[in-house]
């Protein structure tokens, strides 16, 4: 029995690696000003957010979390628990690092909303576009997140700015998907009613479709935030500062305690943001439900 029958023949050698590398190198040499521009804009954006976040007193942030969780859950226990958990991060000495991580997450989420929300609406209008974009979104979501780091690091260098790009790329799909899904699943009669009363396309969208789709859109936003938090940690591999870097350092130095305290802080942030946005989703659903 010949070898090729069992083992894949080594003669067949389709090399797409070189092609991709070439493409990135091409971008690198020809798009320098473009990428420099993006870098500058993002840097400014990040600094702006950082400036706001670092000026929020620690107790005020805890208070805000307390009030928000009280308002969304109506449970005093939860409100106290979340505020205490946040206090715990500070107590471990990780408050400044948390601020850095939050800055990148917030920046990425804002960019995701600016791209994902209009895109989701657009996709909802066209079945063809939906069919085209679906595999792209699937790929974006299943691609191991580390892979994004390579081209981003090559094109934009190391640090927090490329982290925003990588994080946005990774976290964007659920928002597009669920915005589109939310708008598509609005009861057809309700949309017909809006049209029957002479609404323009814009009025139908703003007054009926988006409000009706809001719980689903918020679910998408929730997923986007969660994925952004996860990605920010991975981004430490390209020199992003914050809690992720803390984890990376502890891996290199095998400092279990340090690694866990940073890890737990990330979990706490994720839980608090998740519950707060979930609370908003549930409130919205209760409102929309027929």
């Amino acid at each position: 029995m010949p070898d090729w029958f069992i083992e894949f023949p080594s003669e067949i050698n389709l090399n797409i690696k070189d092609a991709i590398d070439k493409f990135i190198r091409y971008l690198l040499t020809n798009g320098e000003t473009f990428f420099e521009g993006i870098k500058e804009v993002l840097k400014g954006f990040l600094n702006g957010i950082q400036g706001v976040i670092s000026r929020i007193p620690w107790w005020l942030l805890i208070l805000i979390v307390f009030i928000l969780s009280w308002r969304t859950s109506r449970k005093l226990g939860k409100a106290i628990l979340y505020s205490a958990l946040l206090f715990f991060i500070g107590a471990m000495g990780l408050w400044p690092l948390m601020n850095t991580t939050l800055t990148i997450v917030i920046a990425s989420v804002i960019i995701s909303i600016m791209i994902g929300f209009p895109m989701g609406i657009w996709v909802s209008y066209s079945d063809r576009l939906d069919r085209m974009i679906r595999p792209v979104l699937d790929t974006m979501q299943t691609m191991p997140s580390f892979v994004y780091l390579i081209p981003v690091a090559m094109l934009l260098g190391l640090g927090n700015v490329p982290a925003v790009i990588a994080t946005t790329t990774y976290a964007l799909p659920p928002l597009i998907r669920l915005t589109s899904h939310g708008i598509r699943q609005v009861d057809n009669e309700v949309v017909e009613a809006a049209k029957a009363f002479g609404s323009t396309k814009w009025q139908t969208l703003v007054k009926v479709q988006i409000p009706q789709a809001m719980p689903t859109i918020m679910t998408g936003l929730n997923q986007t935030i969660m994925m952004a938090i996860a990605m920010v940690v991975t981004c430490s591999m390209i020199g992003t500062t914050g809690l992720g870097q803390e984890v990376l350092i502890s891996i290199n130095r095998l400092e279990t305690g340090r690694g866990f305290s940073a890890g737990i802080s990330i979990v706490i942030i994720a839980i608090i943001i998740d519950r707060l946005t979930q609370g908003i989703v549930k409130k919205g659903e209760a409102k929309i439900e027929q």
């Binding site: 009861d187 009669e189 309700v190 017909e192 009613a193 809006a194 029957a196 009363f197 007054k207 009926v208 409000p211 009706q212 809001m214 409102k287 929309i288 439900e289 027929q290």
Partner: peptide
């Protein structure tokens, strides 16, 4: 104007 079978009301 129109009235619908399952009402077509805007629940928000």
């Amino acid at each position: 104007s129109m009235v619908f079978q399952s009402f077509g009301l805007m629940s928000h």
